[in-house]
Amino acid sequence: MLLNIKNLTVAIEGKEIIKGLNLQVNKGEVHAIMGPNGTGKSTLAAAITGREGYEVTEGEIWYKDQNIIEMDADERANLGIFLSFQYPVEIPGVSMTNFMRTAINAQREYRGLPPMPAGEFLKLMEEKKKLVDIHSKLTNRSVNEGFSGGEKKKNEIFQMALLEPTLAILDETDSGLDIDALRTVAKGVNELRSEENAFVVITHYQRLLEYIVPDFVHVMYDGKIVKSGSKNLALELEDKGYEWLKEHSLA
């Protein structure tokens, strides 16, 4: 099992957001997590990736057979956990090229490999750019600075392609995307899917799941997964709305 979350409780400034959540993800699987706003979807992503201020008060997160709760965010990243941010931050003055080269070499250093030669790195960049149809000019700019909403999301997928994670969490990657950008992003993800990695796709709408077809769909409500099922669950949810879910969870 790649990821095994057991009875996870997460609090922000003392307020419980996730209240005893369980989730198992195996290699080669795509899991979708759906649910209304404010149910803790993004908090779950933050807890898995080790964001500061998200306090795990109970439970465990097992990844590649180790409990990663005490690990810093960069170590988890180097173990192959990748987060595609809902709101990618701008870092003025730091070029995309420099940023990704630093990231790749950090990962290589973690694995005991020597830094990647500059030429090889540039070649790799060119190759991955094509995957998400990202414009060359974007990689010369500072990280996310002056990128449109769509460009930022493509840029996240581009980074994912470069870093080749084992577990990728896509947090609302579809929000703010027009249909063309959505297709591009989905195409990038689908090409990266393999038997060796897994995806957790957090989304509000069923729309994205038409393009990235999940193996499992989980519905989150009030800090818990209240229902799990196949991809059809997403359709059912779209049809009946989250109100149905509330009744369901109360029942």
């Binding site: 990736t49 080790g50 964001r51 500061e52 810093d72 965010a73 960069d74 990243a77 180097n78 990748f82 987060l83 941010f85 990618p88 931050v89 870092i91 003025p92 003055g93 730091v94 420099n98 940023f99 990704m100 630093t102 990231a103 950090a106 990962q107 973690y110 500072s142 990280v143 980074q159 870093l163």
Partner: peptide
């Protein structure tokens, strides 16, 4: 956190950001 999530440790991240700033 963005840098950390990409595997860059905090010390290196500060360096990157400071250099970008300058």
């Amino acid at each position: 956190f963005y840098c950390n999530q990409r595997g860059i440790d905090t010390e290196k991240a500060i360096g990157l950001i400071v250099n970008g700033y300058a």
